[in-house]
Structure formats: C-alpha cells, structure tokens
C-alpha cells in the first residue's frame, strides 16, 4: 500500500485514446441515425443505451477508472447506484400517487 507521494501512474498510449474517441464518434453517428427512424418506444431505449455505453467508455478510459485502485470504481458505482435509486423511487412514487 504505497500511495501518497508516489505517482504510480499508468501511462496510457495516444493510440488507445484515439481508438476510444473513434468509438465515441461512431456511437454518436449511430444514435443520430437511429433517431431519424420511427421506432416508437425503442427510440428512447436505444438512445439511452448508446449514451450509457459512451459514458462507460469515457469513465473507464478517459477518466482512468480501469487503471485506478478498486476504491475509485467502488465509489463511482455507489454514486451511480444512488442516483438510479432516486430515479426509480421517484417513478414509483409518481406512478402510484396519482
């Protein structure tokens, strides 16, 4: 356990970043193309799934979560789950309260 002053940094190559960036651009293209089609409910679902995939790519590679200590990943998961619980509970409340 020697964190502290030491910079035990994992150097990530430019190529990895460029690949992730190309992936993000492709997903942006796909999500715009899909939005042009009329798929009813699936339009929202696909848009949100693609946004989530893009978010995971940014968090794991650009924000280095993949290479950090496990503590960071646990923190991030707990924070996102907390938000999801807020969201789900709000909808339970909202759907039944009327």
């Amino acid at each position: 356990m020697d964190h502290g002053t030491k910079n035990h940094a994992h150097v990530i190559g430019y190529g990895t970043y460029i690949l992730v960036w190309l992936g993000l651009l492709s997903f942006t293209g796909i999500t715009v193309a899909v939005a042009g089609m009329d798929l009813q409910f699936y339009n929202i679902a696909i848009a949100l799934i693609i946004a989530t995939v893009k978010a995971i790519m940014v968090m794991t590679i650009f924000m280095h979560l993949k290479f950090e200590d496990r503590v960071f990943r646990i923190f991030a998961t707990v924070a996102i789950l907390t938000l999801l619980i807020f969201l789900v509970l709000t909808f339970f409340d909202y759907s039944f309260a009327r």
């Binding site: 942006t28 999500t31 715009v32 939005a35 339009n43 929202i44 848009a47 949100l48 693609i50 946004a51 893009k54 978010a55 940014v58 968090m59 650009f62 924000m63």
Partner: peptide, 19 residues
C-alpha cells in the same frame, strides 16, 4: 472536463434526438 463531457453525452439525446 470529462464529467462535463459525460453530462453532455446524456443531454444531447434527451433534448435533441428523442422526438
């Protein structure tokens, strides 16, 4: 900066794409 990007990743489809 990446967080700012992350938020936009969700704002973009929710405001511009979902008709």
């Amino acid at each position: 900066w990446h967080l700012v990007d992350l938020i936009w990743i969700f704002l973009f489809p929710l405001f511009y794409l979902i008709h």
